[in-house]
């Protein structure tokens, strides 16, 4: 399992990459995609929607389950990754390349873990 050092993680298995102080990309971790299995659909919000740190902004579907995805940051969605709408498998193939939303005007963030701490947490859960 792979947890890039430059990202931060939530306990609920999302990652966030800060592009600058007020801009971030958000996705789900390698561990999350593996646990969820083959993803078949992503319900994404719309650009210009607001997101709040700790609140669900999207859900991902496997054949027999659906899981909420929580936002690590508070801000406004500038862009969604439209490629995921046609190819949800990208989340399985390349979880860190397959960002879900790009958030601007970031004003706040949830409790975030470093890659190291996140990896430790997963090891403890197993």
């Amino acid at each position: 399992m792979n947890y890039p050092k430059e990202l931060f993680y939530m306990k609920s298995h999302e990652w966030v990459k800060f592009l600058d102080d007020a801009t971030a990309l958000v996705g789900i971790s390698d561990h999350a995609q593996d646990a969820l299995g083959d993803l078949v659909f992503v319900n994404l919000p719309q650009a210009e929607d607001a997101v709040t740190a700790g609140e669900s902004f999207a859900d991902v579907e496997s054949v027999k389950a659906v899981s909420d995805v929580y936002s690590p940051v508070t801000g406004t969605i500038a862009e969604i990754n439209e490629a995921l709408l046609d190819s949800p498998e990208l989340l399985n193939q390349d979880p860190y390349g397959a960002w879900m939303i790009k958030v601007v005007n970031v004003t706040d963030h949830a409790d975030l873990l470093s890659a190291e701490d996140y990896e430790k947490m997963i090891a403890e859960e197993a």
């Binding site: 659909f41 579907e61 496997s62 054949v63 027999k64 389950a65 659906v66």
Partner: peptide, 13 residues
């Protein structure tokens, strides 16, 4: 197919 829309998976949602 597309069962994740349905009550047995999505429940109150």
């Amino acid at each position: 197919t597309l069962q994740a829309r349905e009550q047995h998976i999505r429940r109150e949602k």
